[in-house]
């Protein structure tokens, strides 16, 4: 039987579970959130009782540098199905190798952790540019994104600083979760919290979108046309949520 340990999906309980396993010298075959776990005859699904003593957690987690914790957090945001196991082994080795860990790319868990966290970081960076807000008639700025990784919190923090006086709502269409920024607070919501979302555009929204599409077309130099480069830097999967590419997306085969 494979020992699969379950947790509630939150970052803190994942960390607590990893420490509990390490402290009790238990080796997981896998770690899954309740939500994602699918029961299976070969598995022994375990909801282990987490250690209650805070001092024990601190004795483990305080040994991890902020650099290592940053990587762990980004891996946690990844959509990779092995992410929890990668985190378990990465932390286990980080306790042994300290800060050297990030140079030990010959270890598979290190290599995987660095790749996943880099992917989350670069996707976050891309969406900081590609996300598009629309102004609604109630003054709210509204954006829809479809990221591969769970980066909505990273995006919300970025835009909170930029749009200090505006309220905004970002929807992750893939996960059906929302980040609402109002005043200086960010709230994370899901479909249940948002009974009905009225997306009525403000009066001049269409005009501004039109100006942007105009600019987008005009700024390209036709003698330099290079769709391949455009597609390379801005793959098709981003297009459907980008005002200037919507039309081209609709007319293309949507692979």
């Amino acid at each position: 039987m494979r020992n699969v340990y379950l947790y509630d999906g939150s970052f803190s309980s994942l960390l607590y579970l990893v420490v509990t396993l390490l402290h009790s010298s238990l080796t997981p075959a896998d770690i899954k959130s309740y939500e994602e776990y699918q029961a299976n005859l070969l598995d022994n699904a375990i909801s282990i009782k987490l250690i209650e003593d805070e001092i024990i957690y601190k004795s483990y987690l305080n040994k991890l540098s902020s650099k290592v914790m940053h990587i762990v957090y980004y891996v946690y945001l990844s959509s990779n199905e092995r992410k929890e196991l990668v985190i378990y082994y990465f932390i286990k080795n980080a306790l042994k190798y300290k800060d050297e860990i990030i140079y030990r790319r010959n270890l598979n868990c290190v290599n995987e952790a660095l790749k996943l966290s880099k992917y989350v970081g670069s996707e976050n960076h891309k969406f900081k540019g590609f996300l598009r807000f629309k102004e609604l008639d109630n003054g709210l700025y509204y954006a829809e994104v479809t990221p591969n990784n769970n980066i909505i919190s990273l995006l919300a923090i970025h835009f909170k600083d930029r749009l200090r006086n505006e309220s905004f709502l970002i929807k992750d269409k893939k996960r059906n979760i929302y980040a609402l920024k109002d005043e200086s607070k960010i709230y994370y919501l899901n479909d249940k919290d948002i009974e009905k979302l009225n997306i009525n555009l403000s009066d001049n929204e269409k005009d501004i979108e039109e100006l942007w599409k105009t600019f987008f077309k005009t700024i390209a130099i036709k003698e330099r046309k290079n769709k391949k480069a455009q597609m390379n830097f801005m793959p098709k999967r981003y297009w459907k949520d980008m005002i200037e590419m919507e039309e081209e997306y609709e007319n293309s085969d949507k692979r």
């Binding site: 540019g129 130099i221 290079n226 455009q230 830097f233």
Partner: peptide, 29 residues
């Protein structure tokens, strides 16, 4: 950004779109 302001600059630069000539669009040029 300051208290009442809008916007900030990112040290590493952000591309907001790519025109059909493959060039990055970052600023209203």
């Amino acid at each position: 950004n300051d208290k009442d302001g809008i916007g900030s600059a990112a040290a590493c630069g952000i591309c907001h779109s790519f025109a059909s000539d493959g060039r990055c669009i970052s600023l209203l040029k």
